[in-house]
């Protein structure tokens, strides 16, 4: 139970954090269109947005939960399982960022997920 909860936190908080950072960057890029400013300003604006900081905190939470999880769970289970990030990332992109994830992209995401899991499992 403890392992399932922590693994869910690692996957959901890690991917959620990345999705929020992506959301902040897209918002910042929309502002950039008005002024046409450089990459530095794009980043500066993104870091002024709440979702970016919440995203960074979620990624930190995912990282420390991952470290804690490794203290009792088998690394041969934990590391390949985190490849589920790609599936959660695609689902989150479709749900929250309103991206169009078609069947071809889903097939690609699933293949990448399997490939990462196989590589991670073979390295342990």
């Amino acid at each position: 139970m403890r392992t399932t909860v922590c693994l869910s936190i690692v996957i959901l908080a890690g991917t959620g954090g990345e999705l929020l950072a992506a959301h902040a960057m897209k918002q910042s890029a929309r502002l950039q269109v008005i002024s046409g400013s450089a990459v530095g300003t794009l980043l500066q604006r993104a870091f002024r947005l709440g979702p970016m900081w919440v995203g960074l905190m979620l990624q930190a939470l995912a990282f420390f939960t991952f470290l804690a999880l490794l203290s009792w769970a088998d690394v041969s289970f934990v590391v390949p399982a985190t490849a589920l990030n790609y599936v959660v990332g695609a689902a989150g992109s479709a749900l929250f960022l309103r991206e169009h994830v078609d069947r071809t992209r889903w097939a690609g995401v699933l293949l990448v997920c399997v490939g990462v899991a196989v590589i991670c499992a073979s390295e342990l």
């Binding site: 992506a22 960057m25 910042s28 992109s93 991206e99 994830v101």
Partner: peptide, 8 residues
């Protein structure tokens, strides 16, 4: 992330 889809 600001330029292309996150799912890409």
């Amino acid at each position: 992330f600001s330029r292309i889809d996150f799912s890409y």
